[in-house]
């Protein structure tokens, strides 16, 4: 059943997710939304990993392991990111990314 869906379908979905993520990362001002966009990017990568693994090397499992790895890392990253965002909020009383420009020249 699965084999009737060609690989390109998965790739299209992941590409779309990736660029939606990029778009969101570049255009959203809210840090939470940006974080969500990053999650989208990560997940598009996950789809790629799983899909390629399934279609190219069906008898191996590295792709799956890697995506699990990414999910775990993403979870940790989300935790750290949210912590940072909360700190930013405490400092600036909002979470607009354009306000957070202390690290300029």
């Amino acid at each position: 059943m699965l084999s009737q869906i060609p690989l390109s379908y998965f790739l299209v979905v992941s590409t779309l997710m990736f660029f939606i993520g990029i778009y969101g990362f570049l255009t959203r001002k809210n840090l939470i939304t940006i974080l969500m966009a990053i999650e989208l990017i990560l997940n598009s990568v996950n789809i790629n990993f799983v899909a390629f693994n399934r279609y190219l090397y069906p008898d191996q499992l590295q792709g799956h392991f890697f995506s699990l790895f990414i999910i775990a890392v993403a979870a940790a990253e989300a935790a750290v990111a949210i912590a940072i965002i909360i700190s930013v909020y405490r400092q600036y009383f909002n979470i607009d990314v354009e306000r957070v420009d202390t690290m300029k020249y």
Partner: peptide, 17 residues
């Protein structure tokens, strides 16, 4: 050229991408 170092995360992202 110091303007490049704007502190705007998303600008860096643009340039990077």
């Amino acid at each position: 050229i110091k303007e490049l170092q704007s502190g705007q995360l998303q600008k860096y992202g643009y340039v990077f991408i």
